[in-house]
Design a protein around this nucleic acid. Structure first.
Length: 287
DNA sequence: AGCCAGGTAAGTC
DNA sequence: GACTTACATGGC
């Protein structure tokens, strides 16, 4: 079946958006032009960067869903205006202005960030891709989608351990079970104000304050959520010492007060900035 | 060999 | 509540 390509206009930096540990379910399938492929809800999606925005082809995803997945439905100009008063945020916007904040499907986002705990980005990618390849369903020409909660429950803890999730395997299975058995409803969480949603999301196994903030920011559209991992903690200590609180919640709240309702975007820019700087500062590996 | 990686759960006090 | 520790796995 031939699917026609359609276009969405609006500035977007696909590499900065899809390869900076917001989402782990896209594969880069082309370099010039940049092209990424994923499967969502049983439908294939391929996206290419253009001068004006992106061109995409899909087996059946609505256009609006594609926009949402890539974060193209957030008012980027307004967000930039609200963050530019800050020197480092302005610098990051200048360099990575087309970086969006994604709205990933709930369960794959949740599972990815449960797996992210005390882990590194490369291995998170590998684990998520392996989960898809081994348990997820393939869409011809687009690869495998991330498995649904009941597929993960059926696969079970041992299978997930064999895939390499280690001690996080039972967390992923238990959270999947809660969702599959309607003990947890993401859509209902989404109706709550941020503070309540942040408490609620932590009912899931393997979800603490940081992973919870990632899911709220990268899936449930809470642009004020500020995930503080080891990188962000260091960045805040180095560049915003006055915002350091005595615990996670306090630091996050200070950061939120400083940057406002789009604090999550500020977090994302700073996270990317410090990681790029760290990469650049790495000594040339000795032989 | 030992430390670190987008932390959390379970156990103490 | 605040503080400590174990935790799978792989790269360096």
């Amino acid at each position: 079946m031939e699917s026609k390509t359609r276009e969405i206009t609006g500035p977007i930096d696909l590499e900065a958006t899809l390869e900076t540990a917001q989402t782990f379910c896209w594969r880069r399938t082309g370099d010039e032009p940049l092209e990424y492929t994923t499967v969502v809800d049983g439908e294939g999606l391929r996206v290419r960067e253009t001068d004006a925005g992106v061109r995409f082809e899909t087996t059946g995803l609505p256009r609006q869903w594609v926009e949402s997945l890539l974060g193209l439905d957030d008012p980027l100009d307004e967000i930039h205006r609200k963050l530019e008063h800050d020197q480092r945020a302005a610098e990051a916007i200048d360099r990575y202005g087309g970086m969006r904040v994604v709205s990933d499907p709930f369960f794959r986002c949740l599972a990815s960030f449960i797996i992210s705990a005390n882990n590194n980005v490369d291995r998170i990618y590998r684990s998520v891709q392996e989960l898809s390849r081994r348990i997820g369903t393939e869409v011809e020409g687009y690869g495998h989608g991330f498995p649904a909660p009941d597929d993960v429950v059926e696969a079970g803890e041992e299978r997930l351990r064999n895939i390499g999730l280690g001690y996080r395997a039972p967390y992923v299975v238990e959270s999947a079970r809660m969702i599959a058995e309607d003990e947890f409803d993401a859509e209902r969480v989404q109706e709550l104000p941020y503070e309540e949603a942040h408490e609620e999301i932590q009912r899931l196994h393997g979800v603490g304050p940081k992973v919870g903030d990632c899911v709220l920011l990268f899936s449930l559209n809470y642009t004020e959520a500020v995930p503080i991992d080891t990188w962000m903690q260091r960045a805040i200590e180095d560049h915003y010492p006055e915002l350091v609180g005595s615990n996670y919640e306090e630091t996050a709240e200070n950061f939120r007060r400083r940057f406002g309702g789009y604090a999550g975007y500020a977090q994302n820019y700073l996270f990317h900035l410090v990681r790029v700087e760290e990469e650049a500062a790495k000594p040339y590996p000795e032989i």
